[in-house]
Design a protein around this nucleic acid. Sequence first.
DNA 1: CGATTTGTGTTGAATAAACGACAAAGGAGC
DNA 2: GCTCCTTTGTCGTTTATTCAACACAAATCG
Lengths: 192, 192
Amino acid sequence: MLANPPAPEKLDPRVKRTRNLIQQSFSELLAEKGFANITVQDITERAEINRATFYAHYPDKFALLEESIRQAFRAELEKRTLSACHYSEDNLRALILTVCEFIAHSNEHCKSSEQQFDSLVEAQVRKQIQELIELWLAESGADFDRQTAATAAAWSIYGLALQWSRQKNRPPAEQFAEQVLPLVAGTLKPLV
Amino acid sequence: MLANPPAPEKLDPRVKRTRNLIQQSFSELLAEKGFANITVQDITERAEINRATFYAHYPDKFALLEESIRQAFRAELEKRTLSACHYSEDNLRALILTVCEFIAHSNEHCKSSEQQFDSLVEAQVRKQIQELIELWLAESGADFDRQTAATAAAWSIYGLALQWSRQKNRPPAEQFAEQVLPLVAGTLKPLV
DNA sequence: CGATTTGTGTTGAATAAACGACAAAGGAGC
DNA sequence: GCTCCTTTGTCGTTTATTCAACACAAATCG
């Protein structure tokens, strides 16, 4: 019924439409009620689709949130052409900046501070960061070393960005990124 | 495949969606290219629906235009709560005003002055006017008289409004409506 | 406590839409 | 005249969505 992994370049317009309707309604509701208070029925009623159709696309609302985060974050990456390039200090700095702004924007635009919501966002964004860094390191060292280094970098980037976003009088994201750049770069040094 | 006449109060959301997509794309294209230059393919491409789906809803682009005019005009009528009420000079004045503004707005918003386009608009609007007036006269006189009176009134209203819309320095629509009101009312006098 | 409600996740059958193909009509250029 | 190309309607098949129903879990209420 679905065709996720092989990325079908041209997909049925009906599928495109219903996914857009779902995502649109979901993001509206996210801003209005907060994730915990949203039911699948809310989403399908606003999107004017049948509830069964929702389950044909997503197992539950958590999967929908993951997918939404994933798309939103990747869109930010591509906006800065970070999605498929090599490793460099400039790119790493830009990545840190992206994560900072993504978290900040997410806090503004959603009623967050919900346990489930926050941890799902964290997990999903960390995963994206890690995959991207592994891509950057594609030809460096052994598989094991690459995964390990990417893990360390991803966790530290997300942790630092989160801490920054919670500061009361935070410095500009650019300044913060510059400041922590050497720390993160340190976790990758052995490989580049 | 279609269910027009009995007016199914709740219709399949898929049908609703595709009709909206078609109408939306059509009105955009109308403003951009003019009716004659629009192809069915243009419409379906912009609406991101299959061309065969268009023909499941409308026999051709002319039927689509008729339906669009019909809906737009009825929306104007309902905006002034003229759609289902009785006959009175006030209502008749308001109807004349509505037709004037509808034609004027149509001239602004579409690339018109096309033979086919204009005559389709005319026929459709006249039909709506006539049906409404017949409704107003529902319990006056014989069927024959009602239809005749409504025909006369509908033609004169449309003709007057069209002439008004073509004047170079036209007076305000309100003033014009007031001015021609007795003329139109005269065609209905025998019945009310 | 039981009873009612509300939301979930799933099923099978009916239906609208997508898709690819087709013959045919019309226009443009030669 | 002829060809080339676009658009038109139409058709049969496949696929996505709808709909009504179901059993179940978790709240809510009296």
